[in-house]
Design a binder for these strands. Sequence first.
DNA 1: TAATCAACTTGTTATTTGCAAGTTAATTTG
DNA 2: CAAATTAACTTGCAAATAACAAGTTGATTA
Lengths: 136, 136
Amino acid sequence: MKALKIRSGCPISSALDIIGDKWSLLIVRDIVMNGKNTYNEFLKSREKIATNVLADRLSLLEATGILAREEHPESKAKIFYRLTDKGIDLLPVLVELILWANVHLPIDEEAKPFGDRLRKNKEAIVQQFMAALKKK
Amino acid sequence: MKALKIRSGCPISSALDIIGDKWSLLIVRDIVMNGKNTYNEFLKSREKIATNVLADRLSLLEATGILAREEHPESKAKIFYRLTDKGIDLLPVLVELILWANVHLPIDEEAKPFGDRLRKNKEAIVQQFMAALKKK
DNA sequence: TAATCAACTTGTTATTTGCAAGTTAATTTG
DNA sequence: CAAATTAACTTGCAAATAACAAGTTGATTA
């Protein structure tokens, strides 16, 4: 696993030291928005993360307290990856990325209605997702 | 310059295709929070970006419409990098990263009061920064 | 019991980063 | 006004990271 290097005490810089890459927040997205929780489910996402990169990011996200590995309720062969409170608190970052992309990037048509709903009702939707994640 | 690869039509994935790295948002931060606007000012930040990486990111941010290169009001030798509206709209993302880091990461003591203010008065502060950036 | 599945690891190649040094045009200094 | 300095890069090279293909190990299913 690659080591975590902290470049400065700046909050933005420190946040990017952990989640500033192309894959970490996609794993968080898959848990929050797509109900995924296992290695193989993450692998199947359309962005096609490489197996070694996925393993590396999962261990980094675990090491930084964003994810926790738990035993899967249905099978001893599977590992259930769950977001910690620290991980759940990344949801507002995801939301702002979605809102920005909805306005400024070409994205899937199917994704737009959710962005529009978010725009009009951000707080409530964020609270609802957070509650759903913390509950279980 | 490295090419921009879009992995999917997912808003989060597409946003990360552009700003999902350790440096791009630090350049945006330097403009928004630290009043920097030139190559050499960006170079002097404490995270110590390499010169070739800075040049690469500046051209990528320009190519994706986040930054615009303008002539510097004080000198023909300098280039004035300004955020476009698309770049200014990244401010809420920065804000959520700051809020997350303030709660969950060890950061500079000096940075904490601003995070606390943000927490209590996010909307107003964001609007104020945006207005200041759009004005000039 | 054999094949399959889930979660990785390993090896190899391609890409990106970090670091040092060099380039060119504009500006300042002696 | 020639010489040094500044600003914005570019280039070359070694080191780190990512992508791709294949292999390993411990469940689970047929």
